[in-house]
Simulated scan of single mutants.
Amino acid sequence: MTQKLILDVDTGIDDSLALLYLLASPEAEILAITCTAGNVPARQVAINNLAWLELCGAPQIEVALGSEVPVIAPLMTTEETHGDQGIGWATLPAPTRALSERHATQVWIEHVRAHPGEVIGLVTGPLTNLALALRIEPELPRLLQRLVVMGGAFNHEGNTTPTTEWNIAVDPDAAAIVFQAFSGLPAERRPLVCALDLTEQIEMKPEHIRRIAELAGSTPAEVISPDDPEGTRSQASNPVVRHLSDAVRFYMEFHRDQGQGFLAHMHDPFAAALALHPEMAATRAATVDVELSGTLTRGTTVADWRGMWGREHNAAIAWETDPAAFFDHLVERVGSFARAFTP
């Protein structure tokens, strides 16, 4: 059986790998990709998605532009983390596919109305588009099968400010709207939240890229080394491997320069895997809200685990997983998928 998905992204290096993973997954039926500003501006996000789809020979999946600014806050982007175009050192061929004429909010609403209880919403960027859709269709939480969100930091330091995670920090007002709207759902339909507490354990290493290339039959052996000159480009014969390697190398160089090691935290592919296979992580129920007025803490996600607020739980927070097993799954999926593109 396939799982219908709406993918809302700010692509993004790790969003790119999440998309490749979903394209490689036979149980994923991507109904549409909606684009929001975050890692890079929304129009660049749309170009990146169209380019990846075309490179991979994907079916004609609708790619819709969403909000180009947050609900209230001024836009932040992070080209220093993801590169000028959002895909690191990769230079994808310019896409010939056309952007949808529909706005992202229209796409969200019409798909969930057409398939009530069947669609999983996967948001790996700021929650802006979903918050705007909720203003038009407040029943959207009950029309979705489930929402999966990459965002937040609970008992973990932030990656944007000392207490905030990037996707929430870009548009905390949207995040607050979404978490409030998804209250009152049965436990199995509460939003599944993949926060930094777990996603920063999902550390992609050069060995993972080497294994993907090997499975794809790409030559020569794909070696990403911390000793290479910065910005070294892949010579892989396989175009999917080559562009993925160039994107991930940039991300590894960024993490190294931040003192985190020569690795890349793959937040979004992990969230994509949980959208299809929620059993890959243990979860904890909590009531989640977002700080909006704190001078130092605006954008901080707060989880009430023990019911101190007297409000019902509105989220299932992914809490434990086996990173090695996840990467075995990811490598097999993406490497096998990329094999079709080896000359």
Rank of each mutant, 00 (worst) to 15 (best):
D227H: 09
S234C: 13
R249F: 08
F262A: 10
V248W: 02
P269Y: 04
S245I: 00
H265I: 07
P278M: 02
N238Q: 11
F250Y: 14
V223W: 13
P269V: 05
P278G: 03
S234E: 06
P226W: 10
A275L: 01
D246G: 09
E230D: 04
H265M: 12
E279V: 12
S225Y: 05
F270W: 09
A272T: 13
H277N: 11
S245P: 14
R233N: 06
H267A: 11
L276W: 13
S237T: 13
D268E: 12
R242C: 11
F270V: 12
G259F: 06
Q260C: 05
P278T: 06
S237Y: 10
P269E: 04
H255W: 12
T232G: 07
E253S: 07
N238W: 11
V241F: 03
P239M: 09
Q258K: 15
Q260R: 14
P229I: 02
H243R: 02
P278L: 00
V223N: 14
Q235I: 12
D227C: 03
D227A: 14
S225L: 15
A247M: 06
M266I: 12
T232R: 15
P226N: 08
P278Q: 01
D268N: 13
G261M: 10
F250H: 14
A281D: 06
P269I: 02
M252W: 01
A281K: 02
F270S: 08
Q258T: 05
A236F: 05
Y251Q: 12
G259L: 02
A236N: 01
A264C: 14
